[in-house]
Write a protein that binds this DNA or RNA. Structure first.
Lengths: 107, 107
DNA sequence: TTCTTTAATTGTAATATTACGATGAATATA
DNA sequence: TATATTCATCGTAATATTACAATTAAAGAA
């Protein structure tokens, strides 16, 4: 197989899993950290920062964009990436509530 | 490839990614929710609860155990699974701090 | 127009993940 | 001892992920 049966679970469970999947690679964690601290956010800067090829970085950026965690605006030949603050805060809330609810309910 | 180059990133980034990966499947979210609310925690109950085969559930339980998020104690022919409260709280703290730090640092 | 820069996309390979049937190991019960 | 129950593991198949070289596309500069 290889494909998860998302139709068999609750939307909330799928949303959580999708968010977690976006954060499930150290390169994407590093990208998010760099975007947060950097003011420039230009793609090339991220490639310089990470020990990965341009193609691979682009792929990770695409996944973060698919998960709505970042935005990418074209500026001439360059692309300026940014944290999607609104979506990020929503995701943060969703994960925090989930993790708290486990400890609240648990043992 | 298919294997992520974990040696090229910070341990903290790898820890975060590993934790997120454990949460990146709706079945594992569902298992954690069920373990939290259930008092019994017997593996067979989880299989009954989820729309997946026994072998698949066992595989997901193994991953959660590898990530130290749950424990499994043998009770005769049965196995009693439980949230690893200590590790869970640590993970919760790690993720919360990371997500907060992004919004703090960001834009 | 031609060249350069920037970043996405394509093609390809290696490995990981997801899923399940079948089997095996361990314990309890008849 | 034989049988049933419970769960892990093995084998296998389909799909996803990760990574990079090469190419393409788009915009700006010479």
């Amino acid at each position: 197989m290889g494909a998860s049966k998302t139709t068999l679970f609750q939307p909330e469970q799928n949303n959580l899993a999708t968010m977690a999947k976006a954060l499930s690679h150290p390169a994407r964690i590093a990208i998010l950290e760099y975007l947060a601290k950097s003011k420039t956010c230009i793609c090339g800067d991220i490639v310089d920062e990470l020990p990965l090829s341009q193609a691979t970085v682009s792929q990770h950026l695409k996944e973060l964009k698919n998960a709505c965690l970042i935005t990418g605006e074209i500026e001439g030949p360059k692309v300026c990436y940014c944290i999607n603050v609104k979506a990020w805060k929503q995701g943060k809330e969703m994960i925090s509530q989930f993790m708290q609810s486990i400890t609240d309910t648990c043992c």
